[in-house]
Design a protein around this nucleic acid. Structure first.
Lengths: 181, 181
DNA sequence: TGGATAAGTCAATATGGCTGACGTAATGGC
DNA sequence: GCCATTACGTCAGCCATATTGACTTATCCA
């Protein structure tokens, strides 16, 4: 690639390390950029695989969380994804229409449509998870297992404070080992 | 309308779909999900701030990389963002039209339009970087500085193998100081 | 019984991507 | 000097994902 010039600016703006959000402190550009690049490549894997099914990234997110949390309600899903009901609508409908997800009336609250993956849905979810798994496995191999653990703590701390409780309950973090069934 | 409830099909497969077994072990669902949640919140901050300027996430990415790498060419940018020329086109035009970025003819290759931020562009880039910086600062405070360092190594290792060289040259990693090491 | 909640839907719109096709100017190898 | 290639820009159309706002239906619950 073409050689990129070094920045001419910002270098003078630093202060000593130690304070976090002091006004003149240089932002952690390395982490900011690595988050972008890591995420960019992390999702590209899956996007390609999804294309074969005529699905997009949004379908994956829904499928994933339903797969991992059987019986999730639509409201739960909206809160996880932080999107609107209307946005979810199309994606969910397509997943249901094509037999990847089923909806069942809530046992105690019949207004709810609890969501479950079908066998097919579980298979697809697993296929996609394995792609992501492979990349993560390679990364941990390269960066060391402690880096994986630390990344877990760092990423968790990157989540909005008032979302952390939900995240913990919802994710594998909240599950001791093995998880499902 | 609400008669979309699916029949019994697939319900038998709800719980114990053959997950944890076949080829290898259980995917690292914790990291998979934390990447999603962390990124979700990481970009939400900035998205809100950008709305005030009538810009979107795409504008931010362009502004950021030009700010950090003055003299970047359009081709460089396309390779960083992994989008098409046409997609970049509109976003870049808006940033130029509104005085956040300027284009200058390349000195040695006059076909190039080298990109630079204006003072205004630099200010906006910095404002946005500080938002991200604040979140990262809080995260490191919570997870510990070693977690930040490890996260840096982990995220770097998450990048496509054949992209890592470029990423290193391009980002703060390739520059002395900062997260250097 | 009536207000609140869960879900679904219609319609319009924005944004950020994509492919394909073309055009122009400059470079660089021969 | 010629010509293929490169760098950039742009027109046109399309798709996926998201938004706001308004409305309906069914159900729950105080």
């Amino acid at each position: 690639m073409a050689d990129v010039m070094a920045p001419e600016r910002g270098v003078g703006a630093l202060t000593a390390a130690g304070a976090d959000d002091a006004p003149g402190r240089e932002p952690p550009y390395d982490l900011i950029e690595l988050l972008f690049f890591a995420y960019r490549d992390f999702v590209r894997d899956v996007d390609e695989a999804l294309a074969a099914y005529g699905f997009g990234r949004a379908h994956h997110r829904v499928l994933h969380f339903v797969d991992r949390n059987p019986g999730l309600t639509v409201t739960d899903l909206l809160d996880i994804l932080k999107i609107t009901k209307q946005s979810l609508g199309r994606v969910l409908r397509e997943l249901v229409d094509q037999g990847f997800i089923v909806q069942r009336e809530g046992a105690s609250d019949r207004r709810q449509r609890r969501l479950y993956v079908t066998t097919r849905g579980d298979e697809l979810a697993l296929e996609l998870a394995r792609l992501q798994s492979a990349r993560i496995g390679r990364a941990i191999e390269l960066a060391g297992p402690e880096a994986g653990d630390a990344a877990r703590r760092f990423l968790y701390a990157m989540v909005d404070r008032d979302e952390r409780g939900k995240v913990e309950k919802l994710t594998a973090l909240g599950r001791p080992r093995g998880g499902g069934a």
